[in-house]
Design a binder for these strands. Structure first.
Lengths: 232, 232
DNA sequence: GTTATACACTGATATAGATCAGTTTATCAA
DNA sequence: TTGATAAACTGATCTATATCAGTGTATAAC
């Protein structure tokens, strides 16, 4: 049985957000489809700028993006988002008209955009749909809590182990994967300096926790990484 | 006009959560009232234990509580909650049956408890109500994002300034207030050591940013505190 | 009123991880 | 193929803040 206090790693496999649209009626689906646009973004492009007018709710159909709060001198990455997830839902609240965060791509990505007023209308009229959105929001909240804990309470090795497990389990969904980001991106993601990231990755490699060759990483010892994630 | 990038302080005056119950029909209100219990807690008591079975949604009618993730050696305080706010909403998601966080009181408190299955039923049948809950969840998310940013990106003086502004604006809703918590509690809240809290409070006092006598604190220079919160 | 305990406060020291100042190795364009 | 730029990597130093080891001061308990 799972321990309720356990937080290693700070992420878990989420439900696919696509299924929330399954709860719409035929009419509603037609309505959404008629008011939907697909947009392609290149690697490194900004999709949403924090503080800008929140006109649409996005759905990532392809690619990989980061969601972050802008700060000087460094940004805070709230989470990274793989395909089939909604983006921008937290902007839906009364009195607010702007996006809480920025969104940028790690790789070429495609998003589907639905007008926010149409989205709100669906929420008001279809309570099954609203219930599903509450589900998604709360699942996201759990994810952010985990990251908050990870970055504030764990030290460098624990954070590095955590992010490696997240990348393997939630993002690339494979034991062996090729990063489409730099060491500096990993540094942003862990809240460490890129020098520290490089040093710790080397230590993990020397200790046979991972195999690493440039951008290719393979997790060898999940158990020990999880222990490191939990206790340091 | 407000700058979308501004995050000082990490909190803002929220809507009162009580109003979500105004959206219920007479029948629904009777139903909720019939299935509601009031419970009193003493200072320092635990109301919710992280990982325990999430049987109820709570509403804080009186007192002051902290919501936190348990960790060794230290807990992470997600937020502190003044009266007229809902507690436990993020536990509402499919497949989850446990509370994501622990809740404990700073002072004697009273909570009203509604069975979670009754709450979920209201969400499924009353979409106005569901919409309001989405509002509350998203407002909360904005608050947590702000705290996440504060604790990970600001240094000690900025964090201290931030928490003082939060306490004044969101919690005590007064320029001058008497803390019902210790310096160690402030340390938990800022993610600093109690020694650092004490030193920084003294510096703020010496710089005439605040007046302080034991647990009484009066904010004297909001503007400079806000600048410190933003830039250090 | 006296003892005990928790809290507030202070100065000295330790340390995790950042920053700096490079070198080496990729990557990409012409 | 060459030159230019970005990324990866390494060792030395620095610094913000924790930790330690106390002293003083409330508050509560008897």
């Amino acid at each position: 049985m799972e321990n309720g206090n356990s937080r290693a790693p700070s992420c878990f496999v989420e439900n696919q957000h696509v299924s929330c649209f399954d709860l719409l009626t035929e009419d509603e689906t037609r309505f959404v489809d008629a008011n939907k646009v697909e947009v392609n973004y290149k690697k490194g492009e900004t999709i949403i700028k924090q503080g800008s007018f929140a006109s649409h709710i996005l759905f990532l159909t392809n690619g990989l993006v980061k969601i972050f709060l802008e700060g000087k001198p460094k940004d805070l990455i709230l989470k990274i988002v793989p395909p089939n997830h909604m983006i921008g839902l937290p902007a839906i609240y009364e009195g607010n008209t702007t996006f809480l965060y920025s969104v940028a791509t790690y790789s070429d990505s495609t998003v589907s955009m639905v007008d926010i007023s149409i989205f709100k209308q669906l929420l008001r009229t279809n309570s099954q749909f609203a219930m599903k959105i509450i589900n998604i929001l709360n699942e996201d909240t759990a994810l952010i809590y985990g990251r908050f804990f990870c970055i504030t309470m764990k030290q460098s090795h624990g954070r590095m182990a955590d992010i490696l497990l997240c990348l393997s389990q939630r993002i690339y969904k494979a034991k062996k994967f090729t990063l489409n980001m730099t060491r500096a991106d990993l540094a942003d993601l862990t809240g460490l300096s890129s020098e520290s990231v490089i040093r710790i990755l080397k230590e993990f490699k020397d200790a046979s926790l991972i195999i690493m060759d440039g951008k290719m990483i393979e997790i060898v010892d999940f158990d020990r990484l999880e222990k490191i994630s939990q206790f340091s």
